[in-house]
């Protein structure tokens, strides 16, 4: 809304944000301490380790897994993760026959309480444009090579449901504790843009 003309370079965001913040503080519209807390929450407190704990519990506790697939919001809240941009959750499970991939083609919808804020690539044009049109090529770029016949299910988060992928548990991890399993779970595997190292369905 600044005096930007078409075809002119976009105004410098650094200065714009500084100007805006100082005006909003001066007008009493924002509390500076609240700003710092908001940043700290999503930079340091909330992130994909939360989702990894949900996944590890689902791998080790069959009744939790079935609650998670039936009512993800409640099951995730059991672990203490809830709230903004995760108010209504859906968990989709990867199997031998199905690989799920989550995208938001219209903006950047992402389950904050379990994954934190989305990575830059998730919000950028190439992923948003391509994930629905050529998911197998996108997955191959991420190093996920699906065997023929595996169904790819792409979930476009166009409404207020937020999706988390329950990835496949790697073989040979029977003796690992829930905490050790959680350490194996990657952020990308919970978006579907990756698999947990060592797990099948992606073996070529």
């Amino acid at each position: 809304m600044s005096k930007h003309q078409h075809n002119a370079p976009l105004p410098d965001p650094v200065l714009r944000v500084k100007a805006l913040e100082s005006l909003l503080i001066e007008k009493g519209l924002v509390d500076p301490a609240a700003l710092d807390l908001l940043i700290d929450t999503y930079e340091n407190q909330v992130g994909p380790r939360n989702g990894a704990r949900v996944v590890a519990r689902a791998w080790t506790d069959p009744s939790y897994r079935s609650r998670l697939l039936r009512d993800a919001t409640a099951a995730i809240a059991e672990m203490g993760f809830e709230g903004r941009q995760g108010e209504d959750m859906v968990v989709v499970e990867n199997t031998e026959r199905v690989h799920n991939l989550v995208v938001c083609t219209l903006c950047s919808c992402y389950p904050w309480p379990v994954l934190g804020l989305p990575p830059v690539w998730y919000k950028a044009a190439p992923y948003r444009a391509r994930a629905v049109r050529e998911p197998r090529k996108v997955l191959a770029e991420f190093g996920v090579d699906l065997v023929d016949g595996v169904e790819v299910r792409v979930w476009d988060s166009t409404a207020e449901l937020r999706y988390l992928v329950l990835p496949r548990r790697p073989d040979g991890t029977e003796r690992l504790s829930e905490q050790e399993l959680a350490e194996l779970v990657t952020r990308d595997s919970m978006i579907g843009a990756g698999v947990v190292p060592g797990s099948k369905s992606t073996d070529t």
Binding site: G28, L29, A33, A34, L37, R84, D88, A159, E160
Partner: peptide, 18 residues
């Protein structure tokens, strides 16, 4: 105005569209 001492509760509560 969102005050610092409300941030945690506001984020935890969220705002469902359901």
């Amino acid at each position: 105005r969102l005050e610092a001492d409300q941030v945690d509760a506001v984020l935890r509560r969220g705002a469902t569209a359901r």
